[in-house]
Every structure is written in C-alpha cells, then in structure tokens.
Design a protein around this nucleic acid. Structure first.
Lengths: 150, 150
DNA sequence: GGACAGTACATGCGCATGCATTCAATGCAA
DNA sequence: TTGCATTGAATGCATGCGCATGTACTGTCC
C-alpha cells in the first residue's frame, strides 16, 4: 500500500524477476547473435530461417508431400504472419521450400521442403547444435531436472 | 546424400539443448513482445529504451552528475554500438537523457538521465515489472516437465 | 443466386538493428 | 614535433520485423 514514494526499489520478488529477465536476455542475445552470424556466414540462413526449416522437417515429408500452412507455422516460430510470409518468400527464392496453393482451401498455402531445403537443414544442424552448446550449454540456471540423459 | 547416416535425429543431449532453446525463445518472444507493446503504447518506450533508462538510473545520478559512456552501456543491453548510439539519440530527442562530451576523453560521450527521464522510468517501471510477472512469473527454470509437444 | 462478415496470405510502409565506414580524439614512437 | 595505429562514437546502407492494409477465397444468411 505504501507505494507513493519509494519508487527507487523493487521488492525482493520483483528483483528476482528482473534478474531472471536479464539472464534470459543475455542468453537469448548470445545465442541468437551467434546463430545468426554462424548460420548466415556458412549456410546463408538466419536464425528464424533455420527454425522454420526445422519445423518443416519435423512436420512434413519432402517436396510435395503433406506440408504445413503458414498460419500453423507462424506461432511456433514466434513470428508475425507477415514476417513469416516474407521469410517463406526468401526460402522459396533460395529453392529451399515450395509454396503451393492448398486444394481444399485456396486461400491457404501449403509449405513443403524441397530436397535442397532438407539438405541445407541437415548441413546446418550440427553447427546450430554446437552454437547452442556453446551459448546455453551446461549452465541452464536454476535447472530443475535433467531429463535429457535417458 | 545426407540421410544415410542418422542425421535426422539429435542425441539426447542435443534434444535437451534444443528444448531449452525453444523454451528460451518462447519466453523471450512473449516477454519482449508484450513489453514493447505495453511500454510503447503507454509510455512511448521500447523494451531497449527502458533497459537503457534502467541502467542509467542504476548507474548515475540525475542530470549532470556522473554518468555512463556509450561503450560501457552497450554490452549490458545487448545492443551494438551503432544501435545504442541511435537509441540515445531518440531518448535525447525525447528529453529523457543528455549527451555531454566527456571532459577527460573528448571522444567519449557521457550519458545522463534528465529529470524527465527518471520520471518516465519510474512511471513505466510498475508496468514493466507486471509484464515480467505475467510472462516469466513463477517459472524461472528451463523445462521442469512443462513442455509442449507440437 | 447475391451481399456480407470472416479467414489466409501478400504487400506497403515505417522503424530498429547490425555491419561497414567515417570522423574525431588519443597514445605511442621516431 | 610529425606520423601512424587505435579507440569512441556517429552515419550510410541494407535487412528483417510488425502493423495496417489489400486481395482472394470461404461460409452464412437473406
């Protein structure tokens, strides 16, 4: 209730929140920056491009097989619909994906990896994982449970 | 041909890393997006602007007192030198900070909050904290079992 | 059937960012 | 002192993003 004139300090809970936020910002910046640089330099892919390719690899077969629609993909990569639309245009221009009109609903666009897209992804993946290892590796802060060592 | 070996699967360690990365991406996107929107709407500040003001509040007194140099500030807010330079220009144009030439090294620029800057920060802080509470609240660690399966 | 609201994606636009470059000031060496 | 490499910051430029809007299509209600 006494929040009239003690504006200079956070409560302990807030301080923890802020610390967590800064930690998150630092990790995100480190990983995103290095991913963009490394993947861009060596494979011509941005961080988001790689994420999109990965979703496509996970979600569909190669070239022509059942694929994803843009609207489904957008939230999973944390991009706006317009950003994803342009990103797909870039990938399509690079020959890594194809955009085909959806038969059942001609407003929709089916996204599918090409062979080149899959190959590019496979090539880039080790580097992506290595960057994650370098930037996130080991220190995951207040780690709860290690479920990755099965 | 890439799919001969076993390139389609990550090792368990890699899978954990990727899961942690996606978790981090999701939190960052949620918090950053909401912060930008809320702070922008209500106080005319971007997320990075707020972070910069916060560093200035922490690091110096009001208007004219000892301040920070751009080069010192940049890494703490994960911005490039050029981005920070422009950001400071925006804040200065808005009357929230002042840029003064450093006496001892005239290449440097001393950054200081103005009264308006401090006030704006104090006004925006509660909203900032609330957004953090909403987006990061409670869960501070990576993957404790709360994982999505898309 | 025709009009209208709603959905899916593309596009115009402005903005913030990073890289490369530039300009100014400093430090060092001859 | 002059000359040169280095550092701190600002700026030109290209890029990617989100918002708002436009375009094409769908489904519904009359």
């Amino acid at each position: 209730m006494a929040e009239l004139d003690s504006p200079a300090l956070d409560s302990p809970a807030e301080a923890g929140l802020v610390a967590a936020w800064r930690e998150l910002l630092a990790r995100h910046a480190a990983a995103a920056c290095m991913l963009d640089r490394e993947l861009g330099d060596k494979y011509g892919l941005g961080m988001s491009e790689f994420e999109v390719l990965e979703r496509l690899v996970e979600g569909c077969e190669v070239d022509g097989r059942p694929a994803l629609r843009v609207a489904e993909l957008a939230p999973t990569v944390h991009l706006s619909q317009s950003a994803l639309s342009r990103l797909m245009a870039r990938l399509e221009k690079g020959g890594l994906v194809t955009r085909a009109m959806c038969e059942s609903d001609r407003r929709g666009v089916m996204l599918a990896l090409t062979e080149a897209g899959r190959e590019r992804y496979e090539q880039a993946r080790p580097l992506h994982r290595e960057v994650l290892r370098l930037t996130l590796g080991g220190v995951s802060g207040p780690a709860c449970g290690e479920s990755d060592a099965d």
